[in-house]
Amino acid sequence: MDIIRMKNVKKTYKTGTTAIYDLDLNIKKGEFVFVIGSTGCGKSTLIKMLYREEKPTSGKILVGGLDVGKIRNGKVYKLRRKIGVVFQDYQLLQNSTAYENVAFALEVLGLPKSEIHPKVMKVLDLVGLKNKAKQYPNHLSGGEQQRVAIARAIVNGPKILICDEPTGNLDPKTSMEIMEVLEAINKLGTTIIMVTHDIDIVEKLKKRVVLLDSGRIVKDYKEGEYKK
């Protein structure tokens, strides 16, 4: 079953630049997909449309059954609650502890404290940060901050995790640690789409790889097909 469907998607910015041309892409439930391509090829635009940071100019995007292009501004949160998003720069609240950052995603859903606590501790354990729950982001290393961001993204059990260059700021060793966390999450059934520049990681993990160039999919490698 496809959890993400993109059909004839086109995105032209107000400036007149077209970032995506007639793109078709289907992603099955539980898949792990890398999106790669050179800078400016439309990778970021592609995933931004998935979490409705950008709207497609034309075409249809279905994410978990929701028609992304038709979601009104005030209803975007409904989509956001179904997906988790992780960024290169972590996007953590600097004034809140690791625990508070993760708990925040559940607080906005109106969950009671008694439910929030076990869930937050569980995901912090999953990303290996159980003993750093009370630390503030600026006391954590880059890898640790990214783990907090991942924990926050998955704490409410989203079906889809979108990662925009999550290892972009990290050294190779830490990057691999993050990838291990993501793989573990993927094994639990979460679909992961990850945009990256890091070809080494892509080759090592042997997942499906979508290669973009100038706003078009030029190659869709099946698991294990991609070679540098």
Binding site: V76, Y77, R81, V85, Q91, L93, A105, V108
Partner: peptide, 16 residues
Amino acid sequence: KKEIEIMRLVGASNIN
């Protein structure tokens, strides 16, 4: 601004 973006990101409704 960033704080607001993060709130949006984790699925806080606009009114929230």
